[in-house]
């Protein structure tokens, strides 16, 4: 994993996560002949648990079980992202984790250096209390 050439977008998102959002232990993964580059790392504090509607477990059960690492998918502001591309990203992660993750995080990079993060869930989710 150590000698992967970082794509410019990946590099920007990685630095932002490490030194702006203070995530740790970020790893880079390449998929599909290096056409897709994903990041995997640990947030400063555990993010909200992902709850899918089909899942009957309580919140606390899930929190205990939940993975404290997250998958990040860097994407440029001017890039288009289709449903099947998103689906493919979930499938790529299955190669590493043996199952599709409940969610990934899209890290959208703007040309002024701002990066905005969005959860993308694998299906519908229950709303949470604010």
């Amino acid at each position: 994993m150590t000698n992967i050439q970082l794509k410019p977008l990946t590099k920007q998102v990685k630095t932002n996560l490490e030194y702006y959002n203070l995530w740790s232990d970020l790893k880079v993964y390449n998929f599909d002949n290096d056409s897709i580059q994903l990041l995997n790392g640990k947030p400063l504090e555990k993010l909200q648990p992902s709850e899918s509607i089909s899942n009957d477990k309580t919140r606390s059960e899930q929190e205990q079980q939940g993975n404290d690492r997250e998958w990040i998918f860097p994407i440029g502001m001017d890039e288009k992202l289709t449903m099947s591309q998103t689906d493919f990203v979930f499938d790529c992660i299955r190669l590493v984790e043996n199952e599709r993750p409940k969610r990934i995080i899209a890290g959208m990079v703007n040309n002024d250096g701002t990066i905005v993060y969005y959860f993308i869930h694998d299906g519908i989710v229950r709303p949470r209390k604010s």
Partner: peptide, 12 residues
């Protein structure tokens, strides 16, 4: 410009 690791002014 914008500080790469800041909201606006570079304060990293």
């Amino acid at each position: 410009g914008k500080g790469q690791l800041s909201r606006s002014e570079p304060t990293f």
